[in-house]
Design a protein around this nucleic acid. Structure first.
Lengths: 195, 195
DNA sequence: GCTATATTTGGTCACTCGTCCAGGACGATT
DNA sequence: AATCGTCCTGGACGAGTGACCAAATATAGC
């Protein structure tokens, strides 16, 4: 009666490596994550990296895409739970304020944008995730009667990531300062028709 | 009658190293720039790096700060040359469209934001540059009668950098798509009093 | 029990890294 | 011509790198 089956141990090691990658990319930077540092953080031996993953880059890529996917899923949930897109975006902004722009989670996403410019496969997958969410946001804005939902969606996403980028330099920035301005963009036609 | 004096050669080598750093940081990433790659690109021997600079990091830091300073100076000129801040921001957006989000110049700035989170001195200097420009922008908006110039300035800068970040993923993005939306933010009170 | 299969270990490989430095080269000064 | 200060060269140092693999270990199926 083994405490862990063979396959369970394997899955656990794999998961530990992916979790360690998520943290380390933000902490020390994409290019500074080595097989040995990664393995130490994950509590496994460095040789395991290339047993479970094709390459170090493949591991980092997968960890990044999983983190982005989960984050966008959560954000999508916030959006669809709100009565109208402007309120949904307010909820997203409140969530955004939990990131400081210097924590590993924030930096992971910025590192990912850079890594994507040098890794075609990561680029493709990230673009798909991003366009998917942008489409969801644009659809919500369109249903609410926004005159240019696609542009407003792209604009909103740029504001989010740009805000995060600047918050790393100036921690005094707060989502509450940009919320009223962004609402001007996203609720343009809300005072008009709703169905 | 030497073609180059000793000091002239020194200044040239120094300048070549700084210029090579500017390009390489964007091309291959901050952490991937090594003394040897840098020297080869600059056309000098690798030993020279530590003759002219205290460390590789110090070289990268200085190259980055010079590039950012020059860029912000040019942008400030665009802003002050315009009749009102909203027009100035339109001119800045037109300039922004010359960057693809994948060229070395764009990526240098994004790399710089990340490097600043791990290099206190770079952080301090970049923050000063950024706050200085934000102050200039806010002052212009305030003079034009904007009700919340500081917030609008921070918002505008986030839009710029966020747009650049997203353009790397989706080259289809164009500054012309966000210009009308941003104008909504920056020209709020323009229809009202002007002095 | 014994054999197949999956996972893990510990180490090797050739290579690149930042930093440092002794000594050579060269124009300027005396 | 000799000296001085600046600029540059080429290599050395220990440390760290991604990838790889034979051997060891642990579970699963017979």
């Amino acid at each position: 009666m083994p405490v862990q089956t063979n396959a369970e141990r394997g899955r656990a090691a794999r998961a530990h490596l992916l979790a360690a990658a998520r943290d380390l990319i933000g902490e020390i930077g994409w290019n500074a994550v080595s097989t040995r540092i990664l393995a130490e953080r994950a509590g496994v031996r460095s040789g395991l990296v290339h047993y479970h993953f094709e390459s170090l880059q493949a591991l980092l890529r997968q960890a990044t895409l999983e983190a982005m996917g989960e984050m966008l899923d959560g954000t999508t949930a916030l959006l669809t739970a709100a009565e109208n897109p402007a309120d949904g975006i307010d909820a997203m902004l409140a969530e955004l304020d939990r990131y400081t722009g210097e924590d590993p989670a924030s930096l992971l996403f910025i590192e990912a944008y850079l890594a994507a410019t040098r890794d075609p496969l990561l680029h493709e997958r990230m673009k798909a995730l991003m366009l998917d969410f942008r489409g969801t946001l644009a659809a919500a804005l369109g249903r609410a009667g926004h005159p240019a939902p696609a542009d407003a969606a792209a604009f909103t996403m740029a504001v989010f990531d740009g805000h995060l980028l600047h918050k790393g330099l100036d921690p005094g920035l707060s989502a509450s300062r940009i919320a009223p301005l962004l609402r001007q963009i996203t609720s343009t036609a809300t005072k008009g028709a709703r169905e």
